[in-house]
Write a protein that binds this DNA or RNA. Sequence first.
DNA 1: TATTTAAACTAACAAGTGTTAGTTTTTTTA
DNA 2: TAAAAAAACTAACACTTGTTAGTTTAAATA
Lengths: 189, 189
Amino acid sequence: MTTETRKSEIINTAAKLFKHKGYSAVTMRDLAQAMGIKAASLYNHIESKQAILEYIIINIAEEFTLGMQTVLNSDLNTIQKLEAIIKLHVSIANQNPEGMAALNNDWMHLEERRDYYLELRQQYESNIRFIIDEGIAKNNLKNLSTDVVLFSILSTLRSLYLWIPKKDQLDVNELSSDLSEVLIGGINK
Amino acid sequence: MTTETRKSEIINTAAKLFKHKGYSAVTMRDLAQAMGIKAASLYNHIESKQAILEYIIINIAEEFTLGMQTVLNSDLNTIQKLEAIIKLHVSIANQNPEGMAALNNDWMHLEERRDYYLELRQQYESNIRFIIDEGIAKNNLKNLSTDVVLFSILSTLRSLYLWIPKKDQLDVNELSSDLSEVLIGGINK
DNA sequence: TATTTAAACTAACAAGTGTTAGTTTTTTTA
DNA sequence: TAAAAAAACTAACACTTGTTAGTTTAAATA
């Protein structure tokens, strides 16, 4: 359990380094230095560099999948579902922006678990697409290109990790509602 | 001039590889193999790996800066200016999605020219911010958080490179206008 | 056709890579 | 306090990295 703590420290430190330079450019010696130990000592706590990436990415991906299930099983209407998804993203990005960076930029360096990640990701996307289509069918959303709407929302939400760390002391509810206003209501008068 | 052609071939091939795995994970031997030659032969045409990255990123960054100047010097209104910027992004992303990937994901691996790139990028952002503020002041845009509006638009436009290659035979005008509709007009009825 | 130039090659370098083995030090537990 | 466990260490490995030097082949020019 001390190991578990130390392991998390390593993973969190790694995530920070990955955010700055990307998985490939971060060496085990970089990571060790950031932890104040030697590279070989890292292996008392983690199995491999690859395993660190897996921990970071798969945990977040499964957190998103879980959040999506909650939304899908709710009786919210289309707009409310989209608002819930926006809040899910703000919340996770706020809690772990470094991990989100790795998920967005380094997933292609996953080995064994790459396909699993891609499966979760694709499933997540189809679920949002389904919600948008439903909204258009029920006349809750304008009849726009589903692809363009999906792309626009998801691009913004996926980039949150870049933006959130700049704001100190973030109010998740406030940002979520501001984002919903812009993404759903548009900006022109 | 034969050299110039060969050099461009190398740079374009590199951009494709960078898009898939990122700058750090692509080796000169990978690049050589993709070109059908040996790694050492690359150096008859390019100065270094770093120089390839510079060519890719700085060219695009300057193209954006140029496009922004045209927009700023025009007498378009706020909405039209934003539409012009959207079209600028769609056009560049469509013409060079691999380069856009490198610009978005590998700029931090620039060495000498990193600061120059960041300067162009920051200037570009402030210009959009200025247009949004002007729009709010002139009552052409809703009175929303400038930061959130800027972030939402820019995130979407910066992610275009991920989405465009999937669509074959893209109509730049059509996508630009669809995007404008969603980003500016919103999606709810 | 002879010569220059462009573009490929082989061989090698110094430095850096993730990781393992074996050992010592520090901390926790009995 | 003695024993056990955790966490650090040094040293080394096999391999990969970007790049250079020197050479050979192919193409363009005179």
